[in-house]
């Protein structure tokens, strides 16, 4: 129990509260636009970036961000070449990123870095600088999404109507990619590169089962995300489990509960 009152755990909790807002908030737009796999692809690119950051020096977050940004532009380019086979671009970038990551990992062997920590999260090393970075990204996401909520809604619901309304659609697409890359690179320290996409997609999956309106679905994803991150971190802290994995399992448990509850309700009604 004492662990909960320790400095590093409180830092993790504070960071968790911030990514519990941002990741699901961006994730709902990705899921509704059928881009759920983009989170997975960008987080693999971020892993490669983090690995390179460690090989060069001590700049994991910066390189993680840089790689996921590069990957998001590469995906857009490839998507245009393959048109209706757009998923192919995700598969290519994802395997390319894993290939790069594996090479960087072996290069960095002498630096005694722990591969597990990139893949599954390393909350015990969260620094004040990390928290400030998370705070900056959270504020940026809230301001941008808050300001452009109507535009984002229309572009998600009906991209053609959005362009006819005079919305700069390609500018919005770049904005969503950049925000996704930002959110992934701040989340990677808490949930880990392999699990980050769960925080983007599972809250959205829950909200699709519950929400009747777009407003409700935005509120639902944030509540689900926060509950899962806080509960997951507490459980992980008390029983000394891997934080990222626990958060994701809590998310999946919530999804199953919602599915079960819905089944019961529809049977009774």
């Amino acid at each position: 129990m004492d662990i909960i009152f320790s400095g590093f755990f409180q830092r993790a909790l504070l960071g968790g509260v911030m990514i519990g807002i941002t990741a699901p908030l961006i994730g709902i737009f990705l899921v509704l636009r059928r881009l759920s796999m983009i989170g997975d692809t960008l987080s693999h690119a971020a892993i490669a970036g983090v690995a390179l950051g460690f090989v060069i020096g001590d700049f994991p977050i910066i390189f993680g961000l840089l790689f996921s940004l590069l990957a998001s532009f590469a995906i857009e380019k490839l998507r245009k070449s393959y048109k209706s086979y757009a998923e192919l671009s995700l598969a290519i970038i994802m395997s390319g990123s894993i290939a790069l990551a594996s090479i960087f990992f072996t290069l960095g062997r002498d630096l005694s870095m722990d591969a597990n920590s990139f893949l599954f999260g390393f909350i015990y090393t969260l620094t004040a600088t990390d928290l400030w970075a998370m705070f900056a990204v959270t504020v940026a996401v809230l301001i941008i999404v808050g300001r452009h909520l109507h535009g984002l809604f229309l572009i998600t619901f009906d991209e053609e109507a959005a362009s006819v309304s005079g919305l700069p659609v390609s500018y919005y697409n770049v904005m969503i990619s950049v925000l996704t890359a930002l959110v992934i690179s701040i989340s990677i320290k808490i949930v880990g590169g392999l699990l980050v996409s769960a925080l983007l997609t599972i809250p959205a999956a829950c909200s699709l089962l519950l929400a009747r309106s777009f407003k409700q679905s935005i509120i639902t994803v944030v509540i689900v995300g926060e509950l899962a991150v806080i509960a997951g971190l507490l459980i992980a802290g008390v029983w000394n489990l891997a934080a990222g994995g626990t958060i994701v399992l809590v998310l999946i448990a919530m999804l199953l509960l919602i599915l079960l509850g819905r089944n019961i309700v529809s049977r009774v009604a």
Binding site: H150, F153, L154, F157, D158, R212, S213, F214, I218
Partner: peptide, 20 residues
């Protein structure tokens, strides 16, 4: 997940507003 009202209001998208 969008209501009829939300869809119709999205026709007014040109103007900027905060959080819906």
């Amino acid at each position: 997940p969008a209501t009829v009202k939300e869809v119709v209001l999205s026709g007014l998208v040109g103007k900027r507003k905060w959080f819906g």
